[in-house]
Design a protein around this nucleic acid. Structure first.
Length: 763
DNA sequence: CGCACATGCAGCTGA
DNA sequence: CAGCTGCATGTGCGA
């Protein structure tokens, strides 16, 4: 399951960010992103001087490749990488707390796994060497720990056909005579020499990484060797060679050599043409700065239809982009005559700031490498929601209002980090990590990505994260959080540059976002199936594993293994339109009986009770309680259809333990979800509800609503009392007469099927 | 008529 | 014998 989710997430992630300037990228699922293709030139020792700015970056890499990765990409908190988290929920994590913590560490390590293929132009060298040729170097760096997720490996294996590729530190170096430019195990691929830095902040415009998954290390290696040989033979590489190399690089994975060569030729021609046309306006410096993740390239190529033609097209796009955007920016920048060194990373991607400075961001959801990693326990531990004893539930961390739900907030994490480190409310790293990486379901991911895109467009509107916690809209694009402008001019400049996307680019982004959204939905179903299978195998085990991921749950139910639902179920459900501006209302039917003021009141109540509207809750089902539900039987019959649709599939009649967090009290109830055979059918029940009902004073006619937290996949339950105004408590409804067929279904709720007293008050 | 669901009730367990 | 568990049956609604 997890693997699948991760994959999906990763894919999604990729979608949002791939083409970034060197810096960054949020979502490159290292799983697939492990291999990032950076179009950059391998810095020769001699060149270092010229690349002071770059050197810094390199150092960053050296220090912490993970940091690079993170930094490079804008943290997409929304990234469901968590989905892995969600997946994680279902993921086998034998030991609760430990699992989480370990995962966290893993995450960091994995994050480092990001490998970059750097497209570099040898321009510099050429320049230095008499402009005699361009070399393309592919650096591929991996992190040893990179693959911890077996699923990922599997995935890679499938895709790449070379599972080892991911894990292996394949460094593909091409004609870089001097050195491989490997830093701390991080290999960089220099594809184009003399190529400048391409600020690809808006690279999204150019490429859609969504489909990117993997790369074939083997391919890279081969390519590298090939390139090296070539280099030896023809040290005086020409521009054409460069072009070929570029082409080869772009074509690099899994393509047979012949194909690569052909592609290279074609690409070379394209490149040459372009060079001829623009040699006067484009300098080696410019080209050198063009850095594109390999994964991005691959993805983009795929999106363009794949194959040689796609690569050609892609190359054209890139060149065009360089021509139109980059140069323009560069001129502006230069004219600005800023004293600050032209730091490629900074310049290209604001995120870099973050990454470099905050190594802890290892959990960046973007990192495909380690979905699990996101499960850093620390993040969860503090969550009051899972505390068994409501009394004991600690208040939300000061200064970090959004607790559980908020953590998941896309920008809770990313925004602050991305923009600057100055944000006063920047949550602890753990939280961020947790947030993003851990539990985000794919769907969120997509949204996140889209939001991210939005960010690019809106980044100029600063808004302290903290200030709008409640506004978190969930999946909606109307992302309330805008990146906070950096305190330093550079940051702001970067942002502006990043937002300099063309209308065309914007259109593309929008289209991509739409695609992602639909993609997620599909994935959701897929996950669901996966989950089901897993459960079939061993429910108990599954429960344990899940539990392990949710430390809080474990704490809440010591000794009790509970099932933390994976997001899958939730995802499977119709994507609930999140009401903009109110995260609480995950589903329109969320509060079927509440309307207008009543609802408002409810929200207020929720907040008072510690209910965090920021949570990304997805409405699953609701049930108007019958007498038999609130009696002493301690069980509630659940609507069959909704149960089957939104709750984990039950293979055994015993069902599964399921932790239900009481939204109102944050208390976690360990309930059992099961079914009874009934006339060739099933009757689904939620057992062990007695205490919950009593605690909430629920009576017949009241209803419960079950949500799933899309971030961590846990289930939440809410008891809603329905009382006629004036009537103190007992509202015995003509129970029997009212069938709640419709009440159970969201749609029904929408239709107002729920028992809706003329005037009702939700207590 | 079939389905979903409310609940009646038999059987079992443990105090 | 109370309480719980699980099944069976009755009821209402929709196809």
């Amino acid at each position: 399951m997890r693997g699948v989710q991760q994959q999906q997430q990763q894919q999604q992630k990729m979608g949002g960010e791939d083409v970034h300037a060197v810096g960054g990228n949020e979502g490159n699922p290292s799983g697939f992103d492990d291999v990032v293709v950076e179009v950059e030139r391998v810095m020769g020792s001699e060149e270092r001087e010229m690349w002071l700015d770059r050197q810094q970056d390199d150092e960053l890499l050296d220090v912490n490749d993970a940091s690079i990765f993170y930094g490079d990409f804008p943290p997409l908190p929304d990234f469901p990488c968590m989905s892995s988290s969600s997946s994680s929920s279902s993921t086998p994590a034998p030991v609760k707390a430990i699992a989480c913590s370990s995962s966290a560490s893993t995450a960091s390590s994995s994050s480092s796994a990001a490998s970059w293929a750097v497209l570099k132009s040898d321009a510099d060298e050429d320049m230095e060497r008499k402009n005699n040729g361009h070399h393309i170097h592919l650096h591929h760096h991996h992190h040893q720990n990179y693959i911890q997720n077996s699923h990922q490996q599997e995935h890679h294996g499938k895709v790449d056909g070379t599972p080892a590729a991911l894990s292996s530190t394949a460094s593909t170096e091409i004609p870089q005579p001097q050195d491989q430019n490997v830093m701390d195990g991080v290999d960089c691929t220099d594809v184009m020499e003399n190529f400048g830095y391409m600020d690809l902040i808006d690279n999204n415009d150019l490429f859609d990484p969504s489909s990117i998954f993997h790369h074939d290390d083997t391919g890279l290696e081969e390519f590298q060797q090939d390139q090296q040989n070539q280099q030896q033979q023809e040290h005086d590489s020409t521009q054409q060679q460069l072009g070929q190399q570029v082409g080869a690089m772009m074509y690099s994975k899994n393509e047979d050599q012949t194909q690569e060569e052909k592609a290279s030729d074609d690409l070379a021609m394209v490149f040459l043409e372009w060079l001829k046309t623009n040699k006067e306006t484009v300098s080696a410096e410019d080209l050198r700065r063009v850095k594109i993740k390999k994964a991005t390239i691959e993805c983009a190529a795929r999106r363009l239809g794949g194959g040689k033609e796609a690569m050609k097209q892609l190359l054209k796009l890139i060149l065009e982009w360089v021509q139109t955007n980059h140069l323009q920016r560069r001129r502006i920048k230069e004219s600005a005559s800023n004293n600050q060194p032209d730091h490629p990373y900074q310049y290209s991607n604001p995120n870099n700031l973050n990454s470099s400075s905050n190594p802890n961001l290892n959990c960046n959801p973007i990192l495909p490498s380690e979905p699990n990693s996101c499960f850093s326990q620390p993040a969860w531990v503090p969550q009051p929601a899972y505390t068994t004893d409501p009394e004991a539930a600690p208040p939300p961390l000061p200064g970090f209002t959004p607790v559980v739900g908020y953590m998941g907030d896309p920008f809770a994490n990313g925004a602050p980090n991305v923009t600057t480190h100055h944000h006063p409310y920047q949550p602890p790293t753990d939280y961020q990590v947790l947030d993003t990486a851990q539990t985000w379901p794919p769907s969120q991911f997509a949204l996140a990505a889209s939001q991210y895109n939005s960010f690019a467009d809106n980044n100029l509107h600063p808004a302290p994260l903290q200030q709008q916690p409640s506004a978190f809209p969930g999946y909606v694009n109307q992302y309330p959080y805008h990146y906070v402008p950096g305190h330093n001019n550079n940051d702001q400049r970067l942002l502006r540059l990043g937002s300099s996307a063309t209308k065309e680019a914007r259109k593309k982004r929008m289209a991509r976002q739409r695609r992602f959204a639909s993609h997620h939905r599909n994935h959701g179903h897929h996950h669901n199936n996966q989950q089901s299978q897993l459960q079939n195998q061993s429910i108990d085990q599954h429960e344990r594993l899940v539990n392990g991921n949710c430390v809080a749950a474990a704490q809440a139910n010591p000794g009790n293994w509970v099932y933390w639902p994976s997001v899958a179920g939730a995802l499977a459900s119709n994507p609930p339109p999140v009401l903009p501006g109110d995260a609480t209302m995950v589903h329109p039917v969320d509060q079927p009986t509440m309307q207008g003021q009543t609802y408002q009141r409810q929200v207020a109540t929720d907040r008072r009770q510690g209910w965090k509207p920021e949570k990304n809750l997805r409405f699953l089902l609701q049930k108007v309680l019958k007498q038999s539900d609130v009696g002493n039987l301690g069980r509630i019959v659940l609507p069959k259809k909704e149960a089957e649709t939104h709750l984990p599939e039950l293979e055994a009649r015993d069902g599964i333990s399921i932790a239900m967090e009481d939204i109102g009290t944050s208390r976690v109830w360990n309930m059992r979800y099961r079914f009874w055979p009934n006339n060739k059918s099933r009757m689904y029940l939620l057992e062990n509800t007695g205490d919950f009902v009593r605690t909430n004073g629920l009576q017949e006619g009241d209803f419960i609503v079950i949500y799933s937290d899309v971030k961590c996949g846990k289930y939440l339950i809410r008891g809603v009392k329905v009382r006629q105004s004036g009537t103190k408590s007992e509202t015995k409804r003509p129970g029997k007469s009212q069938k709640n067929h419709h009440t159970n279904s969201p749609s029904a709720a929408v239709n107002g099927s729920l028992p809706t007293p003329i005037t009702q008050t939700v207590k």
